[in-house]
């Protein structure tokens, strides 16, 4: 099925504009709206192509798909060094509002890695959507921030006992209200604090319908102990959770960019099941 692609900038109330790619099915009413939220920093670079492939595959299956670049990310305007987590939450709300106007049917948020944490946080903060699709999600912001800070602390590591990946000097700078420079990004205290404070938990106010796609390397595919524990808690809290395990490499961090042509198809299949249940 064919679709049309539009690229444009969505203005921000505070000034600046966010780059959006909207894919809409041609000559038919969309099944619903799908907002895709990409990962952060280097993971965004590793997954850009997969996000676009996913958007194309979902649009070909009849979805209106919006790929929105967050403020100061991708092609969007903005100064990264003064961007906060709440700016990104506002972006998500704007993207969702825009997509709701453009398409009938259910509105689903699909977040990959940190994008999933952001989507869950947006919904728990009151954003109305019909479903949440967690795609290899980061569920623990504290862990995510620690991993990012380590990038800034790992230079000149050697195999001696004296060599450390010490993130404490970076944390001290953030605590003093200063930005820290990591892997080409100037991380503000507000963004660091926002990431660190966010976690996907079972008592979060999330839609009843959740989909979860995890890519694992084990054969046969098995959820990691961490994923297993959280999905069990979400089910116990009354969520209907459809989890699928796909065998493959950790594509968001592999040194070479992986081709995973089966993944977008898997996403479409999960989405369809998702909407049958919410319809």
């Amino acid at each position: 099925m064919s679709f049309e692609t539009q690229r444009f900038f969505l203005e921000r109330k505070e000034g600046g504009a966010r780059f959006c790619t909207l894919l809409t099915p041609a000559n038919r009413k969309p099944r619903g709206g799908l907002l895709i939220l990409a990962p952060f920093a280097e993971e965004a670079n590793k997954t850009r192509r997969l996000c676009l492939e996913t958007a194309r595959t979902c649009a070909a299956a009849g979805w209106s798909v919006l790929l929105g670049d967050l403020t100061a990310c991708g092609e969007s305007a903005g100064d990264f060094s003064s961007t906060s987590w709440s700016d990104w939450l506002a972006d998500v709300a704007d993207f969702a509002g825009f997509l709701r106007e453009k398409s009938d049917g259910p509105l689903i948020l699909l977040g990959l890695r940190l994008g999933a944490l952001l989507a869950a946080n947006a919904m728990a903060s009151g954003l109305k959507a019909d479903g949440l699709f967690l795609f290899c999600p980061i569920t623990n912001g504290k862990q995510a921030l620690m991993q990012f800070l380590r990038l800034g602390a790992a230079a000149d590591l050697n195999a001696s006992e004296a060599a450390r990946i010490d993130t404490r000097p970076l944390r001290a700078k953030l605590a003093a209200g200063e930005n820290v420079e990591i892997a080409g990004y100037s991380l503000s205290p507000a963004l660091a604090a926002g990431i660190e404070a966010t976690q996907v938990t079972a008592d979060m106010s999330l839609p009843a319908q959740l989909a979860w796609l995890e890519v694992v390397s084990s054969d046969p595919p098995a959820a990691t102990p961490a994923v297993e524990a959280l999905t069990n808690r979400l089910r116990e809290a009354g969520h209907s959770l459809d989890i699928r395990l796909h065998r493959g490499p950790a594509f968001w961090q592999t040194q070479e960019i992986e081709q995973l042509p089966e993944l977008p198809k898997e996403i479409v299949a999960l989405l369809e099941k998702f909407t049958e249940e919410t319809a």
């Binding site: 504290k142 862990q143 620690m146 590591l157 050697n158 195999a159 001696s160 006992e161 004296a162 060599a163 450390r164 990946i165 010490d166 993130t167 404490r168 990691t224 102990p225 961490a226 524990a229």
Partner: peptide
Amino acid sequence: GIVFDDDEIDGS
């Protein structure tokens, strides 16, 4: 599903 502290990891 574990988290390492700064002082748990060194070059060795």
